[in-house]
């Protein structure tokens, strides 16, 4: 590592490093951001959810979208795995099924960026208790 010789050096270094701890800042205020939950139980992982999650995290970063991606347990829709839940700020959660990287790309471009619904939504068919 070279020495920091001026303010520009520091800023450059900070920009390079920022993504490493950004996740910790984001987790403080998830409700203001796009929240994405990827189901990651054994069954989901076997269907490729880890690849999906990696793809989503990397792509969101590349496309400069502020989002918190967390993993969660099995959502129960094992027939449609990998399943991904997307919560846009102030909106109802939306669950998508069969999310491979192609589908994930479509979800990011159309739903997250443009707010347009895409094929493959799994309607909520249960109630949650608090």
């Amino acid at each position: 590592m070279d020495k920091i010789r001026n303010l520009a050096d520091l800023r450059e270094l900070k920009d390079k490093l920022q993504s490493k701890t950004k996740l910790r800042d984001k987790s403080e205020t998830p409700e203001q951001m796009v929240q994405i939950k990827v189901a990651m139980a054994t069954c989901c992982i076997a269907s490729g959810s880890r690849e999906t999650m990696n793809y989503i995290v990397d792509e969101l970063d590349k496309r400069n979208i502020d989002a918190v991606v967390t993993q969660t347990g099995c959502m129960g829709y094992c027939y449609a795995e990998p399943t991904v839940e997307v919560i846009l700020p102030g909106k109802e959660p939306m669950v998508f099924g069969y999310v491979d990287s192609r589908k994930a790309d479509e979800i990011i471009e159309k739903y997250i960026k443009g707010g347009m619904l895409v094929e493959g939504i799994i309607p909520v068919n249960y109630k949650k208790i608090d």
Binding site: L7, Q18, T21, K22, R24, D25
Partner: peptide, 25 residues
């Protein structure tokens, strides 16, 4: 409880030393 205190890079990533930079320059 947020950064690794033994790693200056994590401090810099969270705006560390930018106050010093601002003041000096």
């Amino acid at each position: 409880g947020v950064i690794d205190p033994e790693n200056i890079e994590e401090y810099i990533a969270r705006d560390g030393y930018s106050a010093l930079g601002k003041v000096l320059t």
